[in-house]
């Protein structure tokens, strides 16, 4: 009696194959991304050398700096050197700040991740709650209300929401700080950080929360109407067990859309960070664009795009694990 069990094909090797293939597919995309970034930045008007030295610089000084930065050499050569240096983790040094770009961008990106993680939690929690209400209440007032709420959330531009929150909850009510990551004096504790996180996270979370809610509602509706749910009821499974199966079946869609939306949080942070003075990648990018700081722009866009590609791979992998039907 003991030890008699089912025969299951091992999935470990299949997953390893899938993951390897998926990562290999990402390599050309990443090279393409790097090329687009390089090409775009190479087109940026405004001479970084003059902006560094100021208008009164001598032609000799300009020529010297141009040569030192390598800006006088042919584009394809600069592209290749930049690409191979980047692949080795060398992102160059900032023209404006005279610091290694890697240091600037990674610090900023870490701060952005904190913001994105907090917003991500809001996206998943709010998306699941609104989506469930929409699906379960379909055809009733509660369903229509939550559906309308998710449309409003989808439509809410991050900067409008950010400003609204700053004015209403920050300035008028004085409930939340309106900028920065922590108080300059006596700040930095967990409570203080959460206090500073609340408004920017909410502003960044609304749009992806709305999208998540709508897609999850559609998926859950499909599952609840699926034949197998009725079959389970016909076999006398408890309603709780039936719902458990249904939610489990809507989970792959939730994680796919939720994961992608968390990736899209990275685009909203440009505005949110600018308004809330959050020292993340968005603010860094904004400042770098205004200062024509080429290496920082390149690295900032690149790091965001790489994180984005990484997240899509993670989402695909999760989907593979959660839905056996995708394992072909």
């Amino acid at each position: 009696m003991f030890g008699r069990t089912y025969v299951r094909e091992s999935q470990t090797a299949a997953f390893a194959r899938f993951a390897a293939k998926r990562c290999a597919l990402a390599v050309p995309v990443l090279i393409g991304v790097a090329t687009v970034v390089f090409a775009t930045v190479a087109l940026i008007p405004g001479d970084p050398v003059t902006s560094m030295l100021g208008p009164g610089a001598t032609p000799e000084a300009v020529a010297e700096l141009t040569g030192r930065l390598g800006l006088d050499r042919p584009l394809p050569l600069r592209w290749w050197e930049w690409l191979s240096a980047t692949a080795q983790g060398d992102l160059g040094s900032s023209i404006a700040q005279r610091r290694p770009v890697g240091e600037i961008v990674m610090t900023a990106f870490g701060n952005t991740l904190v913001l994105a993680a907090a917003a991500g939690l809001l996206v998943l929690a709010g998306g699941v709650a609104l989506g469930t209400l929409t699906a379960v209440g379909r055809g009733r007032a509660s369903g229509r209300l939550s559906s309308a709420l998710s449309i409003v959330a989808i439509s809410a531009p991050q900067y409008s929401v950010a400003l609204l929150l700053v004015v209403l909850l920050g300035v008028q009510a004085g409930l939340f700080p309106t900028g920065g990551m922590y108080d300059a004096i006596g700040g930095g504790g967990l409570g203080d950080r959460i206090h500073h996180l609340a408004l920017p996270a909410l502003a960044a979370a609304l749009v992806p929360m709305g999208v998540t809610a709508r897609v999850y509602a559609a998926a859950l509706t499909d599952v609840l109407n699926a034949d197998f749910v009725e079959s389970m009821r016909a076999r006398g499974l408890s309603e709780a067990a039936v719902i458990r199966h249904a939610v489990r079946n809507a989970l792959p869609s939730l994680l796919t859309i939720g994961g992608l939306q968390i990736a899209y949080l990275l685009e909203g942070v440009v505005f949110v960070e600018t308004i809330f003075a959050w020292p993340g990648i968005g603010q860094t990018l904004f400042q770098a664009i205004q200062a024509r700081d080429l290496p920082v722009i390149e690295a900032g866009v690149l790091v965001t795009a790489v994180a984005f590609v990484g997240l899509t791979i993670a989402v695909d992998a999760l989907h593979w694990l959660l839905d056996p039907r995708t394992r072909r």
């Binding site: 087109l43 990736a263 440009v270």
Partner: peptide, 24 residues
Amino acid sequence: LRSVDVLYAFPGVLLAIAIAAALG
């Protein structure tokens, strides 16, 4: 489709910002 994949790898705003910054 590969070219579209590359563009798709950029969050939309970021791509627009990069292009707008490049063009002035």
